[in-house]
Amino acid sequence: MFSGLREKVGQVLVPGDEFCLEIPETLSLSEPMKPEKVLLGPGLKRKGDRKLLVVKSGVLRHKQPHVFWVENQQRRYVPARGETVIGIITVKSGDVFKVDVGGSEQASLSYLAFEGATKRNRPNVQVGDLVFAQFSVANQHMEPELVCVDSAGRANGMGVFGAGGLLFSVSLGLIRRLLRPRSDVLSDLQKLLPCELVVGMNGRLWARASSVQQTLVVSNLLQSCDTMSPPQRQQLFRRAAQGAL
């Protein structure tokens, strides 16, 4: 049905490109017809009954069995449910913290959404602290809400953090490349330097290595390999390994 879509996988598309659903001309009554479904990721929208519209410019990607999306090099983050982000506490008012996540609105984080927090036992959070949290509510109609516990009530790596490290911003594309299951960037970095890295899907990275110099090296390397192809990046890492350390 969406063979037109499959053909264009790996090609660059611009907003306004459309794909039409083809109805097969003859329906076979003897074979069972399986409904074919397609899962649309970012950059693709359904238009009317039979058409798909491309709304962002980028490369069309496909993941088996039926997921399609448009990959682009965007810098601005839009909150989405379930994503883990690094936020900065801006306001501490009563029971709720306001957190800046880089989106169009500040997210709210309740003080009870931390592991082991009760009304008597409040978490130690100050304005300006970094917090690693997950979106429990994030859609265009409502104010985004963050929680620092997973559904079982455990922290699972989330919560307040940040002493001694450096926070910096990169593009969303690099974040996705770092979070891939077998990420090249991450493995190259691990071979180079031992360091602690927190990856927020809102484009923010936090790094801490054994010394200030090494932390600066890590942050500069990651910021520069944003727009590099794998061979260029490996060359850069090799130069860093020889020179700086």
Partner: peptide
């Protein structure tokens, strides 16, 4: 975007080490 405490502390520490 607001400046976080850890950025401020790290920058001052780095400057003290002349980095």
């Amino acid at each position: 975007t607001p400046l976080s405490n850890c950025e401020r502390d790290f920058l001052l520490k780095a400057i003290e080490e002349k980095k």
